[in-house]
Nucleic acid binder design. Structure first.
Lengths: 216, 216
DNA sequence: GTCTATATCCTGATAGAC
DNA sequence: GTCTATCAGGATATAGAC
């Protein structure tokens, strides 16, 4: 899948080939649905070699979760740093998250799959990912919101509450696209559906709704 | 789990006992993680009897998906019908969806798990569920929004776009609670976390944000 | 309708030659 | 490091007695 450039292992190394194959398989099938044989096939090697490099299915899976989380939150960080106004920050967040997840809808769905397994694993891994960011994406978003409240660009809001509405609004369509398509078909509100035009409309709609919702 | 009262099969019948056991197992483990043996154990019977009543794992699973979808969209319908103003409709939707999914977070996560399997199955089942509603929930929501635009209570918006932001905002916290907890811990923005107080705050925050976002 | 026993295949993991 | 062969357990599903 080639999501990451920042791999510790050498370019083209067997570790990297296996890890990418494992990510593809786990993201497509989830923990319970993934098969070690499929990972070996994707990597072009045989099963025992998988266990030689990574001891078990679980170790391979945890590496996948770590890399997916690091990718997603690193990606967000890269798109919201250095924005001067709240408006600019908000637009950058919405555009980049929707564009990226629309291209790879399986990534947020994979995170949901991991969440449905409990939450202990993902909390530990997320904690590590944030501690490796400098500054952490949480800090950037928090300061952006607080500054906008201080300058009076937006009304006072609880930053966590706003972030949840923002993330939910950005992610819902890409995750639940089949449901939306069916609801749209039933109401006749989608008409001749053009996905890329619809995504542009989606970005504009989320921005307008949320910006109107918080501005003073 | 006892989500449904409207079962066709008799109260306390073996079919119903099995179906409820199957729902518990599939909702907890997903399609790939669910085990026929676990379903049999939950129902207090043995495996062959499972195949006697329902031919295969797949048939049992499809019944579960149908019943979960019928439950969720039926539940929403019951809470948005007969609301006179848009404001009243919006508050009822937010309160009931957040309250319900906060009690059963696994239900939206189960739907996500099914979405990650593709989307064909769920579209077919959703289409059937909507066709069995009278009026369908899609119609109620659509007319509510259009009327609010006509009376001038809200500005012109694309109903589908608004519904996605609404659903995303309501569902994000309950699905991603472990992530939110970790982000909150990292920023120190959650403090002494009291879940039920936080859920009240969540309902208020979503309502205020979205109502401000669309009102004229 | 309900059970025991079993068929058939698949799964993660390892032994051991090279 | 890489392979073939294989283990031990678990998966869905069925045969057949009662």
């Amino acid at each position: 899948m080639m999501l990451f450039d920042d791999v510790t292992s050498e370019e083209g190394s067997k570790e990297k080939i296996i890890l990418e194959a494992a990510m593809d398989e786990f993201i497509a099938e989830g923990w319970a649905g993934a098969r070690m044989q499929s990972i070996a096939d994707r990597a072009g090697i045989n099963k025992p070699l998988l266990h030689y490099y990574f001891r078990s299915k679980e170790k391979l899976y945890n590496q996948t979760v770590y890399r997916v989380m690091a990718y997603f939150f690193g990606f967000v960080l890269g798109n919201v740093e250095g924005k001067d106004s709240f408006q600019e920050f908000l637009r950058a967040f919405i555009d980049s998250v929707i564009d990226e997840t629309a291209e790879n809808p399986r990534i947020p769905l994979f995170i949901m799959q991991e969440l449905s397994r409990g939450g202990e694993t993902i909390r530990g891994i997320l904690s590590q990912v944030l501690s490796e960011q400098n500054p952490p994406v949480t800090e950037v978003m928090r300061t952006n919101l607080i500054r906008a409240m201080e300058t009076g660009e937006i009304r006072p809001v609880n930053p966590i509450q706003f972030i949840m509405s923002l993330l939910g609004s950005c992610l819902y369509f890409v995750m639940a696209e089949p449901i939306i398509m069916e609801l749209g078909k039933q109401t006749g509100l989608l008409g001749n559906f053009d996905r890329s035009r619809f995504l542009e409309e989606r970005k504009e709609a989320v921005f307008t709704l949320l910006y109107n919702g918080v501005r003073s």
